[in-house]
Structure formats: C-alpha cells, structure tokens
Design a protein around this nucleic acid. Structure first.
Lengths: 204, 204
DNA sequence: TCTGTATTAACCGATACGGTTAACGAGGAG
DNA sequence: CTCCTCGTTAACCGTATCGGTTAATACAGA
C-alpha cells in the first residue's frame, strides 16, 4: 500500500476505511466491489487504488488494522487486570463499544473475515489470528475468581452462552441497521448486570 | 411459477430449493446469482428459469414456503400446548431442528430475508410477515406459568437473552459451516437444560 | 415412426468488475 | 506569468458475470 494514505487528514482516512469495513462486512470478499467502497467514502475508485494498489491489499490492511486496534483497546481498558468475571466482561465490551464509535462496522467485519473462504486471503488471515479467542478464553478462566459464582452451574456453558448472546445481540443490531454506540453500550451494560445477578451465588 | 415443478421427484425438488435457500442465505438478493443456484442443485440454469420464470418469483416462493413450513412444524410439535416456558422453548427448537434436517439453510434464509432491502421484494416480504415474532412473543408471555421461575429477574430480559443466544449459536454454526442437525439438537437441548436450571426458582 | 415433454448448451445484450491512464486543477516556487 | 508538483478523477480497457431466451437434443410412450 501507499504510505501517502497516512498523510491524509485523519477524518478522511477513517471515512475510507469505514466504508471498506462496511462493504466487506456486508458481502463476501469476492462479491464486495471496490467501486462501492469508493462511492461510500466519497472518493474516486482511482484514488482508492492509488492508496491500496489492489483489493487484496486493502482487505489485508483492514484485517491487520482490526486486530491491532482491538488488542490496543482491550489493553487500554485493563480488561485482564481484574479477577471479577463480570468486571472483565464489562471492560471487554466497553472497549469494543469505544472502538465502535470510530469504526462502526469493524466488529461485523472481523466476525466475517475470520470465516472468509476466498483462497486468496484465507491463509493470510488464519495465520495472523491463530486462536486468539481460544487463548483469551484460557486466560480468562485462569484468572477469574469463581468463589462468588453459583456452584451448581457449568462455567464453560455459562461463558459460551454469554458470548453467543452477545453475538446474537450484535447480529440483530447490524441486520436492522441500528449501530448506535450509546444505545448499545447501555443495553450491553444492562445485560451484564442481568447476568451478574443470575450467575452470582446467593449469600447464605 | 410453473406447476410442473411439483411433478418432479421430491428429492429433486428439495435439492433445488435447498440450493436456493443456501445461495440466498449467503448473499443479498441482488448479489445472489441464479447460475449459482443451478450449479449447486445440479440442473441447468435454463431449467431453473423454466420452473420459476424469474429470480423474484423464486425468492418469493422460498419466503412463502419458509413461513408455511415453519408454522406447520410449530403446530406439529404442539409448541404452544403447554404452559411450561422451557418446554415451549424445547418444542419450538426441536421443531426447527426437524425442519433443518430437510432444509438446512432455511433458518439462515429467513433471518436474512426479513431484513432484505432490495426494493423489488421488500414490500412483499414485510406484508407477509407483519410481526409474527412479536405476536408469538405475546402469546408465550400470556400462556407461560411464571410461578416456578425466579422472582428476582426480569422475564423480558431473560426471554430476549435466550433468543439472542440461540441466534448467536446458530450464527456460529452457519459461519463455520457446521450444520449438523443431530449435533445442533443435542447442544440446544443442553443449553435449554442449562437455562432451566439457571432460571428456575430454588425450592424453599 | 411420430409426438410430446424434460432438459440443456449456446447464446444475447447489458452491466459490473478490477485495474489503468491520461489529464485536470490548485498551490507554491522561481 | 510560467513551470512544476501532487492529489485527484473521468474516462477508459478487457473481461467476467448477470438475468433471461432460444433452438436444439434426448428420450419416453403411442
């Protein structure tokens, strides 16, 4: 890619890569047209190719960028610097909401990219991600304090179920085109509070 | 559409409409090509047009068909003939699993079709569905016996959260291309048992 | 051998694709 | 005023793909 991209005003950079995240999150790699990204970001297709030489390079840049920014946000929110499970959950999701304010479609893009099948990019993606989700899951389980949690339920099922619900919640938001970070943040927090109440051991 | 379609051997009919459900569930209406459906079902594109005159008609047939079959399955499983919430949930999901055996991609298709934006079909779809989900939600809330449920949690949140989780779970299955009804049925049942344990009031 | 029917290869015009090129236009330097 | 730079794009290129059609094939039964 062309480094001059980074000399652009930040707002324009974001407009471009947000358009790209959006288009690539709504269609598969093969069916997502560069022209749509150009139109969506208000620049010409020629300029898009000027900065990102071709489709594949743009896609891989978006992928690397998404991983980096997610890691950074998780770190900034000190997600793993607590052993309270629900506090971890809250920090993790608040960090994602803060990302969503700048890059509304990055979450959906990542979810889709991970399962992308186009041969041209599949290899590059899997190698760069290995098993981040599994690794972080392990870290969470090692760190978390289970003493306050209900003893009669399976923690792995609880963990899976919560993340299914978050994905399902976000899916609905994307499908109905309601990506409003403030609203999502409030609703997510209320979901977490709900889970905390449900899964916390009652005092004797 | 051409009624001769129904004279085809049932297996061939299913192969064709399953191919269509699959292709339309993976791309938006506009970007889902008829040729892909023909290839996937092992017939020629010409024959596909012979039976379903054009793309729009095929899509609407799939939609009507999905609604009808879902209703029928829900009825056959006597989903609403109990007032135990978790029993309702189980019957509802088992009915969907049984449908999944014959039409693996129908669930994903319905989810996508509901939010389809293509002007040519949007109107036809919304009118045929009005607010089935909201209506059935109301029926469930009126019918269900809340006496055994925990008193300290909000039932609407519980209801939403469960359905988010199911959608999230199915999303993962579709994205990772693991549509194995037996496996899904087992895992769903174990999830429901989990929820039942979590949300049921402890005996005094 | 004739007839009707299921099926498709080949085709059609239109459009959309990824990517390129030649030129435009504003702004600064001489 | 001229020249040059550089961000930017309209217009273009060859190819692929789209929805849909047509003319022909294969084959059954009478």
């Amino acid at each position: 890619m062309n480094d001059k991209f980074f000399n652009l005003p930040l707002e324009k950079q974001q407009r471009i890569i947000n358009a790209a995240y959006k288009v690539f999150s709504q269609s598969s790699y093969k069916k997502a047209p560069m022209s749509e990204i150009a139109d969506e970001s208000g620049i010409s297709k020629a300029l898009l190719f000027h900065y990102f030489t071709n489709k594949k390079e743009l896609y891989l840049y978006l992928w690397i960028n998404a991983i980096e920014m997610t890691r950074k946000a998780v770190r900034e929110y000190k997600t793993l610097e607590t052993n309270d499970f629900f506090e971890m959950l809250k920090r993790s999701l608040l960090s994602k909401c803060s990302l969503m304010r700048d890059y509304p479609h990055m979450y959906a893009f990542s979810l889709r990219a991970y399962y992308e099948t186009a041969s041209e990019i599949k290899s590059a993606i899997q190698e760069n991600f290995s098993d981040v989700s599994k690794t972080s899951e392990m870290i969470v389980f090692e760190k978390m304090d289970t003493s306050r949690l209900r003893k009669d339920i399976d923690l792995k099922t609880m963990y899976d179920e919560i993340f299914y619900a978050i994905d399902g919640y976000m899916l609905k938001k994307y499908r109905s085109n309601r990506i409003i970070p403030d609203e999502i943040e409030l609703e997510i927090i209320s979901l977490i509070d709900f889970w905390k109440k449900v899964y916390t051991q009652k005092e004797a």
